[in-house]
């Protein structure tokens, strides 16, 4: 089987077979990071541009490390170091980058659809590292990888996602990813954080956290953005924690072996208690580890894999 995609823009455009292939490839990549010399020559001579227009530490470092472990040359551009601050349009910036012949452009952008806008106009592969509140496909893929690793499968699992669904690209991509792989997804949050028509993505909306995590195999907590406190979305962190925070007591509703996920960074004591975040069922750090392998797999499939045969 060949991986035929030029870009990774969202989960919707990936088939079940594509996702399985990505996860299998990522599984194989994990071992490289455990070697004393954590580097293979696979993408030597390939250029990867990390173009982050929004602040990011973990996602950007994860992509950067992934590129370096495959021997690709990665360069970073941020909003302040690019000509965007000089008034250049996104398309012009992308075309300028394109003129330097990169193989892959990784884009993080505050506007939904921004990666789609440039993908149509450049020959390089474009990987969406998060666009607005639309999609974060690499996060969803690494989450699928982490669940599959612990549970051995995804199909038939009951997944709960709790938090600000309205403003979460992670939630959207995970709802689509998990349902595509045969899991059932239930979401819950204050009504101010549930966007209209979210059920059309394939999930169910539960009225409260208890019914949401009832009998769940996977409980995914989303970060509550502190700056939204006191806005019209929720009154205080205190009230949010009381209604939708995950603690040991509440977690008893889920299956005993339910795993706990969080895309980070954590607000301990708000959406998740210390005990739960650091407990045995937490896979939060596995997610980070798998993130590197997953991104290595995507680089490999897009720039050096079956499209341009070369082995690890």
């Amino acid at each position: 089987m060949r991986f035929e995609h030029k870009d990774i823009l969202d989960i919707e455009s990936l088939s079940l077979q594509d996702i399985s292939m990505i996860l299998d490839t990522a599984e194989g990549m994990k071992e490289i990071s455990k070697r004393p010399v954590k580097k293979v020559p696979t993408l030597r001579g390939k250029t990867i541009v990390l173009f982050f227009q929004e602040p990011s530490t973990r996602t950007k470092s994860s992509f950067d490390i992934a590129a370096k472990r495959l021997s690709a040359d990665s360069i970073s551009l941020s909003k302040s170091s690019s000509s965007i601050v000089k008034g250049e349009t996104l398309i012009d910036t992308a075309r300028t980058l394109e003129a330097m012949n990169p193989d892959i452009i990784v884009l993080r952008h505050g506007s939904s659809g921004a990666p789609h806008l440039i993908a149509k106009r450049v020959n390089a592969s474009v990987i969406n590292a998060g666009d607005g509140i639309h999609a974060h496909p690499t996060q969803a893929l690494l989450d699928l990888m982490s669940v599959k690793e612990r549970k051995g499968k995804i199909e038939g699992l009951k997944v709960s996602i709790i938090g600000d669904i309205s403003h979460s690209r992670v939630a959207r991509s995970n709802i689509l990813g998990f349902t595509k792989m045969g899991a059932t997804v239930t979401v819950s949050a204050p009504k101010t954080m549930i966007p209209k028509g979210i059920e059309a993505l394939g999930c169910r909306v539960a009225p409260d956290i208890d019914s949401c995590i009832d009998n769940a195999d996977v409980v995914m907590m989303l970060r509550i953005q502190k700056e939204r406190q006191g806005s019209i979305l929720f009154p205080t962190e205190r009230e949010y924690a009381a209604l939708f925070g995950l603690n040991t007591e509440r977690l008893k509703k889920a299956k005993p072996d339910a795993i706990i996920m969080h895309p980070g960074p954590l607000n301990r004591g708000v959406e998740i208690s210390n005990e739960v975040a650091d407990g045995n069922n937490s896979v939060i750090l596995d997610q980070v580890t798998n993130g590197v392998a997953l991104r290595m797999a995507l680089f490999y499939l897009l720039a050096g894999g079956s499209r341009n045969a070369d082995t690890i």
Partner: peptide, 11 residues
């Protein structure tokens, strides 16, 4: 609505 939610655009 549904389309805005899917595209991640504010409605």
């Amino acid at each position: 609505g549904t389309v805005a939610t899917r595209l991640g655009l504010k409605g």
